[in-house]
Write a protein that binds this DNA or RNA. Structure first.
Length: 290
DNA sequence: CTAGGGTTAGGT
DNA sequence: ACCTAACCCTAG
């Protein structure tokens, strides 16, 4: 009657996404009361947030006029052609950006010839997309990465160590208790938009995903990436839910790994500081707390 | 307060 | 006619 339906605006959606990244899915009241989002979400209740997030997650992973498999229950078929029945596969191959994204972003030819797997790439990616002017705190970064990729349970500790290294490499700077990309490095990332092989995605996008994505893609390329991120988030959410049991097991291992990890972090930090010319004694290090 | 099932309005 | 998104209700 009075208010037929109040459709969600893109600002509200964006605020919701950022809220989930910052506080985690399920903390609807917290998100709604956060001064960062409350102006945008003032007309939405915590329940509205929850429902909207449910819709977003659903259409992102369910994606489908082709298949209406809502909750696909894989029963480990003995003669299935699919080699990995555990993960849900999207029917449309063209909109799967997959983990190639982080590599693109953090591709620096000459910087570290040593190891540095893709974890640092994930961090840079997270900072680039969160792009908070005052930097993002560790929890925000952690949540972002944890929802987008599946990480080992001890990742939080690794994260601190990696951040220190990135600061040393002048790619990241620390403000108060938050981290952000340095201006110099942020520019380097924005410049190359990859070669023509990237091109446009298939114009024949399946169903309504294109409706939502199209809005943002036209506005800004960065938001486009954020959209892709959001889809990954939703996907990761689903996986995380399914992998709940595995996580409990992982938690047990985490307990064991934690002590080992402390040593690794210590070593990593030592290496970091020594490589910057600091002279440390074992005693100094021993007095440091974790 | 949140999660989840259920209901209805709007759009194709 | 069917599908989705917003809204509502209720148990935990």
């Amino acid at each position: 009657m009075g208010a037929p339906k109040q459709k969600w605006t893109s600002e509200e959606e964006e605020a919701l996404r950022r809220g989930v990244l910052k506080h985690g899915a399920g903390k609807w009241r917290t998100i709604q009361k956060d001064p960062e989002f409350s102006p945008v979400l003032s007309s939405r209740s915590n329940i509205d947030l929850k429902d909207k997030w449910r819709n977003l997650s659903f259409s992102a992973s369910g994606l489908g006029s082709r298949d209406k498999i809502r909750v696909p229950r894989m029963k480990v078929p003995s003669s299935s052609p699919s080699p990995s029945p555990q993960l849900l596969l999207l029917p449309a191959p063209d909109n799967v950006v997959e983990a190639s994204a982080p590599e693109d972003i953090a591709k620096s030819p000459e910087d570290d010839k040593t190891h540095i797997p893709k974890y640092s790439a994930m961090i840079l990616e997270a900072l680039a997309e969160l792009k908070e002017p005052n930097g993002s705190d560790v929890t925000t970064i952690y949540n972002f990465i944890e929802q987008r990729h599946e990480v080992q349970p001890n990742f939080r500790r690794l994260l601190c160590a990696k951040l220190r290294r990135l600061i040393g490499a002048k790619k990241v700077e620390k403000i108060e208790k938050s981290y952000k990309l340095t201006d110099a490095y942020a520019k380097k990332m924005l410049a190359p938009m990859k070669d023509p092989s990237q091109k446009k995605k298939d114009p024949a996008k399946p169903s309504k995903a294109s409706k939502n994505l199209g809005l943002f893609a036209a506005a800004s390329p960065a938001l486009d990436a954020a959209q892709a991120a959001a889809m990954k988030v939703a996907d990761a959410e689903a996986k995380a839910h399914l992998a709940n049991e595995h996580m409990m097991e992982a938690e047990r291992i985490f307990k064991m790994a934690e002590e080992t990890e402390s040593l690794l972090t210590l070593a990593s930090e030592l290496y970091d500081r020594c490589s910057r010319g600091e002279v440390l004694t074992v005693l100094q290090v021993a007095h440091r707390e974790f």
